[in-house]
Amino acid sequence: MNSLVITRTGTHLTVQDFGRFHYQHLGVSPSGAMDQRIIKELEKIIPLHHNQFIEFAYVGPSIKVKEGSVKVCVGGNCNMNIQKNNGTQIMCQPYKSINLFEGDELNIHNTIETVYGYIAVEHGLGLNPCLKSFSTDTKAGIGSINRPLKVDDTFEILEDVSSWDHLSIPNPTYKKETNFKVYPGPQLQFFTDQALQSFISTTFTISAQSDRMGIRLKGEAILSSESHDILSEGILPGSIQVPSDGQPIVLMRDIPCTGGYPKIAILKEKDISKISQLPPGSQITFDLQTIY
């Protein structure tokens, strides 16, 4: 038996995977990792992740091997070190496999100029799926663990590490993008040419109220010429909705399943991951494409 325990939580620590699908008609949001590019990369080093990744925002957790040994890998742009059982401290890097033995503690500090980071553990975290997924939606209380992780949460990993070989991949270079191509949303016609013009010419600032549900933007008010209250309809991550205050919200992974605000535009899937990594205060612009 091998086990890992959380000794410090960091912030917004949850279990995530590539998303929970096929249940949105019952009010269940897709959830899943905010930056899916990173867990895709981690898959190259820890192929046996069993779809159980730990996600953190800004500050990572400390995890300690309580029993046995485990192989882990961290993804994202972050600082970290290992406090060995014998008291020595060693530096370690993301995107390189890390072998941890009984008593070793991995401390992940802050993410650098980004928001989200991930931990993959070989053979997963010993969890059972909930509605066919390991993702957590803390607002809806759905997940293998239906809440943020806390200190003393322990994961039992039945299988042993397959190999002590060190694996690594070059750090993926994610260019920090601030201009996003967007495509016409279902209520584009609710906005006059003038409103659309100000949508593409405004530099929006990402608000600190952003979370896994949505990224809130601050900037010139974009007002609909019709209504800001439509009949609720199905929505998907990446949709940019505009409530009556004219401040757009980019809907993210923990979306409410239906929404009643007009949607001016929609982001591409890969840009949902990109935009999730921009910390509050970042400035972004949109480039509205006419061809879908």
Binding site: F21, H22, H25, P30, L231, S232, E233, G234
Partner: peptide, 10 residues
């Protein structure tokens, strides 16, 4: 991946 009915749309 998902099919979401609402009042007047799918």
């Amino acid at each position: 991946l998902n099919i979401i009915p609402s009042f007047n749309k799918i």
